[in-house]
Design a protein around this nucleic acid. Structure first.
Length: 342
DNA sequence: TTTAATGATTATAA
DNA sequence: TTATAATCATTAAA
């Protein structure tokens, strides 16, 4: 737009060539071999062309295009352009790869939304089969396939939108380029300028692309939190596992804080993860402390069990490796008698 | 259907 | 980082 006003100013200046500061008017006039009014006339027509109707303008354009003075005028315009274009140079040359869009790209790639389609239609088919099949083989498998199906849906939407975006972008770019090429017949347009315009268009479109990527990322995150949140697929530990954990807890009641190694061992015994062991102990400690009375029975049960186990072990091996007997500490021990009564 | 139990998460403090 | 306390969301029992 600024260029346009500059161009108009340049053209207006050209109108009065005698006082013009452009090039060498005298030689130009000689070159043209025409009176000055003629040029002013043509310029007047060019200036007025925007006010005319489309058909009129088209006809006028054609007439001007065929005008014998057109090449000369064109070269003058080129000269002016050459001068003005200097000022717009340097405001380009900045194309840093947007870190935001790179972040989004990485995430989409990691989630398998962008990038190569893994498994192709077979994954969708498998998901559909799993959903249709009455008996979900693995427990949680149905949810997993549901998740995959939803992800595939997001992926499909993303790709179709991206395609639309790319099509629109290239369409628009082509349109503008054609327009500029067409205009370059009547006004000087350097390839650099076209390039710059294309860059501007791409920048504008890339903000749209970012929005698309942003919202896709959001959708994936929501899907993840909805399906992969462990709380939603909580399963109670099996009886044997809770037994092992409770045994440890009540036999270390004075200090129910298993070391990292102890946690690992418990995890292995119970076929759960170390962090699950940590969770369990965290929950157990706080819940025990909050209501010791409620756990009294359980405590006695396990105390007996431990004692019996220890007794049998010591009887079998005739060794004096009695279990760690809780004496004092942060957690009050329940009163218990060897026969299990309170 | 309501309630209790339970595994996981979150916020906070040491 | 880890422990605690509160809370969430699901499962199992009543």
């Amino acid at each position: 737009m600024d260029d346009q006003t500059r161009m108009l100013a340049g053209l207006a200046g050209l109108g009065g060539l005698s006082q013009g500061d452009v090039g060498d008017p005298d030689s130009l006039r000689k070159q043209l071999g025409q009176p000055q009014q003629d040029i002013g006339d043509i310029l007047q027509q060019i200036m007025a062309i925007t006010d005319e109707s489309l058909d009129e303008a088209q006809a006028r354009k054609h007439a001007l295009n065929c005008h014998r003075m057109k090449p000369a005028l064109f070269s003058v315009l080129c000269e002016i352009k050459e001068k003005t274009v200097l000022s717009i140079r340097g405001i380009q040359d900045e194309d840093p790869p947007d870190p935001q869009i790179m972040r989004l790209d990485n995430m989409l790639l990691a989630e398998g939304v962008s990038g190569p389609e893994k498994g192709g239609g077979s994954a969708a088919a498998a998901a559909a089969a799993a959903a249709a099949g009455g008996s979900p083989g693995a427990d949680g498998g149905i949810e997993h396939s549901d998740y995959r199906a939803k992800l595939a849906q997001i992926r499909q939407i993303y790709h179709s939108e991206l395609e639309k975006y790319e099509q629109a972008c290239s369409e628009f770019t082509n349109h503008v380029m054609n327009l500029l090429r067409e205009q370059s017949r009547t006004r000087p347009i350097s390839p650099k300028e076209i390039e710059r315009m294309v860059a501007i268009i791409h920048r504008k479109f890339s903000s749209i692309q970012m929005q698309l990527k942003q919202s896709t990322c959001e959708a994936v995150m929501i899907l993840r939190s909805r399906f992969l949140d462990a709380r939603r697929k909580r399963r109670n530990f099996n009886k044997q596992a809770t037994e092992v954990l409770n045994e440890y807890f009540y036999s270390h009641l004075s200090n129910p804080y298993p070391s990292e190694e102890a946690k690992e061992e418990l995890a292995k015994k119970c076929a759960i993860t170390v962090s699950q062991v940590s969770n369990w102990f965290g929950n157990k400690r706080i819940r025990y402390k909050k209501n010791i009375g409620k756990f009294q029975e359980e405590a006695n049960l396990y105390a007996v069990k431990t004692a019996v186990d220890a007794a049998s072990v010591s009887a079998q091996a005739s060794q004096a490796n009695s279990p760690a007997t809780p004496t004092s500490g942060g957690y009050p021990a329940p009163c218990y008698t060897p026969d299990g009564r309170l």
